[in-house]
Each structure stands twice: as C-alpha cells, then as structure tokens.
Design a protein around this nucleic acid. Structure first.
Lengths: 140, 140
DNA sequence: ACATACTTTAGAATAATTATAAAGTAGTTA
DNA sequence: TAACTACTTTATAATTATTCTAAAGTATGT
C-alpha cells in the first residue's frame, strides 16, 4: 500500500538520487527542507529540534545526520561554515554568496556580485567555485 | 631578573595589548606565532602539537586556547572556518582572501581580487568586511 | 509472502572546545 | 625585599557537534 501523492514525488526523487530509500523519516525530512518558497538555512540540531518539536514519535539524531549528509553529497544541499564549529546547510544550491550578520545568514544572489579581477589558480589546479562572505555590522 | 631582548618586545606588546600578562608560556606562543616571515595558518591542536613536541615541560591545552582566543579578540590573529568543525587562525590579519585546496589554505593578497559589483548592505547595517574563498580542484 | 540488503535507533565513542578549581606567579605596595 | 592580591596555569571534568555500533525494523525485488 503506497501513500504517495504527486507532491511527494519530488522529495522522493531527491532521496533516491542521493542513494537513499524513501523511508517515512527521510520523506518527512525532505519535505520539511524543500517544500518551501524561500531558501532555508539550518544546522542539523536546528532541523532536528524544529521537526521533532511537535512529533510524538521523534526521529533520531543519527537519521537527521545521515539524511542531511547524503542530500548534501548528492548536491541537494550546500554546506557552509561560520566561526562556531558547526555545519550550516542551505537549500539554495545555486552558486551564491552570503551576508553574515551576527550568526544570521542572508543569501546574496550570484549576479549581485561580479569580479573585476580574480587570481589564477596555482599550476595543476583549477577553480571549482568562488564564494563571497560579506560580514555586516550595525550602522552608526 | 628580566630576560628580554629587543626582539621579544614585540611579542610581549601583542600580549599586553590583548590584556594578557606576558608569562613564559604566552611569550613562547607569541614568538612561535609571530616570529616568522611567512604568514602562518593553524588550528589550536596543530599549534599545541608543534610547540609541545620538543618540550619536556608541556604547555597545557587550556593555555593554548586562552592565548589564541585573546590574541584573536585583540585583532592579532584572524579566525576562519573550513567545513570540518575546527577553527583555523591566520597570523596575517590584513584583509585578504584564501584558496582552499582540500584542507590546505593559501593566502591571496587583497589586491589580487577586485569587484565590479557588490550588493548594498541591508538598511541599518554596513559592510564590515568582504572575504572571498576560492575552492580549488585538480586539473583534468 | 520471502529473503536480503538497507534503515532506524539508542547509546557509546570521538573530537574540539570551554569550564572548574586548586596550586603557582606577576606586578604592586609597603 | 616581603607580602599581598589578582591573574595564570594546569589537570581534569563538562559540553557540544558529530560519527560509530550493533540490534531490531522495513523497503523492495522475486
């Protein structure tokens, strides 16, 4: 007996293309992450807390880590780091940049930043990507 | 009895301006960090291991963390992050950028990158700094 | 419906970092 | 210089983020 409406398909596809069977837990995580208009920035701990908050049967920490890691490896999530030893993930996987405003992260669309000059890659290497972080502080 | 030649002064000044008394341990750490030609990238663990390697009397982990943290807060070190939940520090505090080549970090001088277009800061905010990370991969 | 390989989970293990509190030291003062 | 006080060092415990483990459960092909 399959419970699957057309809306779920997309989430399930993301899981399958990450090499993951679409179990209930994973489908719910995938929905939670991708069924939204705006891009979503999160840590695994935040994701776990916000999803488990209302659930009677909690999804385990390991499942959150496994699922997020697989989605990231498959390219459905983008990982980035702040200076607090925690991994952040972004549902916006298109190349883009970030504002950091004391712990808060805001996406900057790729075309908002263009370069006049970029260095050459060292010999034997090539550029995989370029990421810009603009740190903000309060005016005045 | 003071053992202090003019060379040490500089290291001691960095400590004092970080609000730290120049104890033996701290002076040695400060020397180790700043008494070099090229800029130095390190994690606290790496710093501890390389300094303690040859010492009979080891400097404690807490002292490394405290000292590095104070030097960073005072602006004598720059902190940055890779995607491995570890803090990296850079003795080059001038605004500059980085190549990341699987875990290896290479400085890029500030003037090697210039922008054609940068976004405005959100209202009430201003730009504190802009950092570029260029990720490398092997050719072919 | 079976078999099998993949999953979930609680809990242990690990790694980086921070906190604690007792013993030691720098810098000031008398 | 002796004494004092506040700051330091250190070993160790605690904390946080993450990964590992192994037993019990489930998806999927036949």
């Amino acid at each position: 007996m399959h419970k699957m409406n057309s809306k779920n398909k997309t989430f399930i596809d993301k899981l399958r293309s990450s090499g993951l069977r679409p179990t209930n837990q994973r489908v719910e995580i995938s929905k939670f992450l991708f069924n939204r208009k705006k891009t979503f920035h999160f840590t695994v701990e935040e994701l776990k807390n916000s999803m488990n908050f209302k659930r009677s049967k909690k999804i385990s920490t390991a499942t959150f880590y496994n699922t997020v890691h697989a989605l990231k490896s498959a390219g459905h999530l983008k990982e980035f780091s702040l200076e607090n030893n925690t991994s952040y993930y972004d549902t916006n996987i298109k190349s883009h940049h970030h504002f950091f405003d004391n712990g808060k992260v805001i996406d900057i669309k790729s075309d908002k930043i263009t370069f006049q000059k970029l260095p050459d890659a060292p010999k034997g290497k090539k550029i995989k990507n370029v990421e810009v972080v603009i740190r903000l502080e309060n005016n005045n």
